[in-house]
């Protein structure tokens, strides 16, 4: 394992217990930082708007990303399209802190993901289950987030993916050593990673929840289900009072088992983002990239 890869996994460890917020302007980035975000995701349009606008969705303008890098001291992440290694090269060139190879953007390659081992900059990737997570890790991802369904404000898919991921881990842990080879075959991943999950009882990298978090209760739900932190995309800046909601979600992630506190945090937050139910979605972003 290269020294840089180790450092990249360790940066994700520093983000644990935190909330990563989608922002589209330096002003929003500052609001996010003041509210207690542990990192921001710089993008031109938040997922709810990408969904509404339709068309091809690409990496953000580097100038816009730079203006956000200048606005805050916390790490700045940005998205490239699945398989678009040139967008990734550009993001590395502007010294982004983390690249999200993301299903939220239109995929650039319907077969291959970016070979992330060729980069020094860290990558986070989405996954719906253990197999997908380990495939991304073997390609060089140093952080995973469960996919959920971005831009919906509907938590059901985030819950489904986190439960599936954890069930997959529990299964691998419970297998006999001589059964791990077959499990690697079934999961379509390298044996060494399956062995590591078997021995350590967890993913080899930090795992956040994403895709559909809209309330402090949603965030705490994902933490109680085993997430190590939370991405909030459209949920904050599509809501009535972004500042207050952002701060409340941050506190709910820290004290995710304290129902009394979360009750207080959830009171008087104003309008949550208007959600779209799973059944009403035409485009399932989570289906992009397997």
């Amino acid at each position: 394992m290269s020294g840089q890869y180790q450092l990249n996994k360790e940066l994700a460890q520093m983000l644990k217990g935190g909330v990563i917020m989608d922002v589209t302007t330096p002003e929003q980035a500052r609001i996010a930082q003041e509210a207690g975000a542990c990192a921001v995701m710089a993008l031109e349009r938040i997922p709810a708007d990408i969904r509404a606008a339709g068309g091809v969705s690409r990496m953000s303008d580097p100038q816009m990303i730079r203006s956000i890098q200048d606005a805050v001291s916390i790490p700045v992440m940005a998205k490239c399209r699945i398989g678009h290694f040139v967008e990734a090269q550009i993001l590395e060139a502007i010294e982004i802190d983390y690249i999200d190879e993301s299903e939220v953007l239109s995929p650039a390659d319907d077969v291959y993901h970016v070979d992330k081992t060729q980069f020094r900059v860290p990558f986070v990737c989405g996954a719906r289950d253990l197999g997908e997570a380990l495939r991304r890790i073997s390609e060089g991802a140093s952080m995973i987030r469960t996919k959920g369904e971005p831009g919906t404000g509907d938590i059901v898919q985030a819950v489904r993916h986190m439960r599936k991921m954890n069930a997959g881990i529990r299964k691998v842990v419970s297998l006999r050593e001589d059964e791990l080879f077959e499990e690697a075959k079934q999961l379509q991943v390298p044996y060494a990673l399956v062995k590591q999950v078997h021995d350590e009882g967890r993913l080899p990298v930090v795992n956040f929840a994403a895709g559909g978090v809209a309330t402090p209760a949603d965030a705490a739900l994902m933490m109680q289900l085993g997430a190590e932190g939370v991405f909030v995309g459209s949920g904050i800046f599509k809501s009535g009072d972004p500042k207050k909601r952002a701060a409340a979600i941050v506190q709910a992630v820290t004290n995710y088992k304290d129902a009394k506190l979360i009750a207080d945090l959830s009171a008087g937050l104003g309008e949550a983002m208007v959600g779209i139910n799973e059944q009403e979605i035409e485009l399932l972003m989570a289906e992009r990239g397997k």
Partner: peptide
């Protein structure tokens, strides 16, 4: 971790 986050939460 992130000092800005911890500082904010220490007060809150």
């Amino acid at each position: 971790g992130e000092s800005t986050v911890m500082k904010k939460l220490l007060h809150a």
